[in-house]
Design a protein around this nucleic acid. Structure first.
Length: 799
DNA sequence: GGTCCGTATTTTTTT
DNA sequence: AATACGGACC
């Protein structure tokens, strides 16, 4: 039925030269159906690269264009803020500026928006702040200490994970207390921790990430009239990446798609009234997902949400999108082969008309650095061949793998950026600055206050802080109140003055928090508190860099002010709290992108390097014990593979450093699942294993029956006595870059100069580009091939 | 209260 | 390897 020719459809008019409908242009029949279908609930099962974003945006645009919905009646949930911005833009491009008023955002952003409006009904104040995981852990740490919980084997991260899991299941303290086995002392202790943590958050007028969703659900359930406001408002709800929703998010969607209040009453008596009035109708729901790409079980994502969609939402329709528009057949064959090893999945095979394309390139390095050098060299080759840096991405399983990559990339003068990872916002000086901002935005928060109380040094030590806290506790007041009344505590005159001065500063700035620009607030706080002055006056050379980071933060607030002229400090803090790793991706940056496999979801690149394809890394060691762990790791690998459009590189290392120790690594089991003819090994595991040479090429050349013969021999080699990595490899990367950055000063090179590199040996300079500290030498080494080096820091000398 | 130094712990993935 | 924390000492 989807292929019936429709003469009224401008997109496929017979003569072909009539105006094309931007809504349906270029879509296959399935995609079209997904755009045009109307009904209470629709599940679009969209394989990787099947154009789901396009379908989703056109579906929204269609609703608007036909006047089936006003922009304000649409709620679209995306996985990242970046995806939201992109979707908004693309809808706008089709229907014009009417896109305003739509809610296109992440679950968390949407919930904050709702909570800021409604939370006063709930006993919170609407200037609540958001605790990120580091904040939650800081709070838990205090609690665990108070309770001597380490005696019970409870750690901060264990408690944090457990609490997060409970909240994702919408279990609150009372709910947990009901079901917990309280004869178990550890459980009892945990309950106490959970209780204090919850109280700590509410005392601080703060929500953690999980609360944002959970409390919104509780709010809707406790106040049906508030829920009805949103149920009436949103007539079309669309959710992307539905396979990664957890129970709390699922419940939120359920609440929002319920018919508004009066209907609800009738439904409770067993009769569902249909279409009695527009006002009473439930919102239509469209979800898009792919259970093969579910990779967030560890944070509560429940694959059942998508598997059981048809049961949960009666009268629903399912549309399958299997044609892939992104990758070559070679890449898809590899992806299909890998994912087919997962059981209990609906069989689904991606296909394309693009053609086979290049083979997948495999490489085995002696070490993580060797592997990184391969990646850098290949990227340079691609770039020389006309590939832009921004079309290349490097993926890895764990953030710690960035170190080796960065070291090599810096030396090779490859422009790169790391998405996520140790973020700017996690630096101490940045958290300090935020401490000041939060202290002003939300005076109830003791965490922020403690952070800045003695930063810069004011002579307010732990003892004084404890005295203030005790004073506050005994009067059921906040720490901030105690500071204001410090004169009553009988502390020394110097300390008392320091405390009162700080309290006054915060109070004075707080008075303008509603009106002043975030940038001005921050500047005033940093200036008057003496924070920047202290950094600048410091002897510690690192403090200079810290001061620069603080300056950068000021620049960020100014930028925010420019983009949001009406934006308050609270708006700024909210936005910053909710940025995702992939959000700071600037497409115009012209750099290679480095990110974890998780961050890579939803993105695509011409050339993809998937590194560290080793046992214990991918699949990760930690996943082995968890039920469904290895299968989820396989999906992660699958997600990585399917990000690639044209070229895919799989690399691994024979040895991997971790905890400052070098361990033997073995090829990942997933490598064997890829048909051998799809991979061309530049250096196979077998080759790398043999003593620095390539004599075991035979191992690599023939796979023949059974497949995995090389893997078996490899394992054998790896298990037995392991390759004291070839001497060459050892010297090649030993202490490649030390903590102190090498500085060649004003060393200048010109074409024709002979140089000596500590790792690559002697070579001749081909040419020099760039100037000043950014000069790059293109060097032809006698034995190591051609490399590009950042002259200022490369370990080289002129001969 | 501040500073210095030795020891322990860390790395799975994220809003 | 890199950082965080606790205890000793000033």
């Amino acid at each position: 039925m989807t292929t019936v020719f429709d003469p009224h459809d401008p997109g496929r008019s017979a003569d072909g030269d009539s105006v094309r409908d931007p809504l349906l242009d270029g879509l296959n029949p399935r995609q079209r159906e997904a755009v045009e279908y109307r009904g209470p609930s629709l599940l679009i099962v969209a394989g990787a690269g099947s154009g789901k974003t396009s379908v989703l945006t056109r579906r929204i645009a269609g609703l608007l264009r036909s006047r089936e919905a006003w922009p304000s009646q649409i709620l679209a949930i995306t996985f990242t803020n970046k995806a939201a911005a992109e979707m908004r833009e693309r809808v706008g491009a089709i229907v014009g500026d009417t896109a305003e008023g739509m809610w296109i955002s992440t679950f968390h952003s949407a919930c904050v928006r709702i909570l800021r409006r409604e939370v006063e009904a709930f006993g919170f104040s609407k200037n609540f702040t958001i605790y990120d995981s580091a904040d939650s852990k800081a709070l838990l740490k205090r609690i665990l200490k108070e309770l001597d919980a380490d005696m019970f084997g409870l750690t901060v991260s264990k408690a944090a994970n457990r609490i997060s899991q409970l909240k994702n299941e919408l279990t609150d303290v009372d709910g947990f207390a009901r079901d917990a086995n309280l004869s178990d002392p550890t459980e009892k202790k945990f309950l106490e921790i959970f209780r204090r943590y919850t109280r700590g958050l509410s005392d601080a007028n703060a929500f953690d990430f999980d609360d944002l969703i959970g409390q919104t659900v509780y709010l809707f359930r406790a106040f049906p009239q508030i829920a009805a406001t949103y149920q009436r408002r949103f007539k079309h709800i669309l959710v992307d990446e539905y396979q990664d929703t957890n129970h709390a998010q699922y419940s939120l969607i359920r609440e929002l798609t319920r018919p508004p209040a009066p209907e609800q009453f009738e439904a409770a008596q067993g009769m569902i009234v249909q279409g009695s009035s527009t006002e009473a109708e439930a919102a239509s729901l469209t979800v898009v997902g792919d259970s093969d790409q579910s990779i967030y079980a560890f944070r509560g994502a429940d694959i059942r949400n998508i598997v059981e969609f048809e049961r949960d939402f009666p009268r629903s329709t399912v549309i399958l999108l299997e044609q892939n528009y992104r990758s070559t057949q070679t890449i898809l064959d590899a992806a299909n082969a890998v994912i087919s090893n997962n059981f209990d999945r609906k069989d689904k095979k991606l296909f394309t008309t693009i053609g086979a394309g290049d083979k997948i390139v495999g490489f085995t390095g002696y070490s993580g650095h060797d592997e990184a050098q391969f990646v850098a060299d290949e990227i340079q080759k691609l770039h020389d061949g006309g590939v832009a840096y921004k079309d290349v991405a490097v993926f890895y399983r764990t953030n710690s793998q960035t170190r080796a990559l960065e070291e090599i990339f810096i030396r090779a003068a490859l422009p790169y950026r790391v998405l996520g990872g140790t973020k700017f916002y996690e630096r101490a000086e940045i958290k300090d600055a935020f401490g000041y901002l939060i202290a002003v935005a939300n005076p109830a928060d003791p965490l922020a206050l403690r952070r800045i109380m003695n930063t810069p040094k004011r002579g307010i030590g732990p003892a004084t802080e404890a005295a203030l806290q005790a004073w506050a506790d005994s009067r059921e007041m906040t720490l901030r109140d105690a500071m204001r009344n410090a004169t009553e505590l009988g502390l020394g005159p110097k300390v008392t003055k320091a405390i009162v001065d700080l309290a006054r500063l915060l109070d004075e700035v707080m008075a303008k928090v509603e009106t002043a620009k975030p940038a001005d607030i921050l500047t005033e706080l940093l200036d008057r508190s003496g924070y920047v002055r202290a950094l600048r006056a410091s002897q510690d050379p690192q403090d200079e860099a810290r001061a620069e980071n603080v300056d950068e933060l000021v620049a960020v607030t100014k930028e925010f002010g420019k983009n949001n002229p009406e934006g308050t400090l609270l708006d700024f803090l909210t936005e910053v709290s909710l940025v995702a790793a992939a959000d700071d991706l600037d497409d115009s940056s012209g750099t290679v992108s480095l990110m974890t496999l998780h961050t890579a979801k939803g993105l695509e690149y011409d050339s993809v390097f998937l590194t560290g394809v080793e046992e214990d890394l991918l699949p990760h060691r930690m996943s082995a014990n968890e039920p469904g762990g290895p299968a989820e790791e396989r999906r992660l690998f699958y997600v990585g593979i399917t990000r690639a459009r044209k070229r895919l590189f799989l690399s691994l290392a024979m040895t991997r450093a971790q905890f400052g120790e070098v361990n033997v690594a073995m090829p990942s089991r997933y490598l064997q699942e890829i048909p051998v003819e799809l991979i061309e090994w530049k250096q196979s595991p077998g080759m790398a294993n043999s003593r620095g040479g390539t004599q075991s090429r035979a191992l690599n050349a023939r796979q023949g029956s059974g497949g995995g013969s090389w893997a078996a021999s490899l394992r054998e080699a790896a298990a037995g006595g392991l390759p004291p990595a070839p001497p060459r490899a050892k010297t090649e990367w030993a202490n490649a870059i030390t903590a102190t950055v090498r500085d060649n000063g004003d060393l200048t090179l010109a074409a024709g100069d002979r140089i000596r590199h500590t790792d690559f040996g002697d070579g001749t300079v081909n040419q020099v580009t760039g100037n000043g500290p950014k000069s790059i030498a293109d060097v032809q080494f006698d034995t190591a091939g051609r490399k590009r080096l950042l002259i200022k820091i490369a370990p080289i000398e002129k001969l």
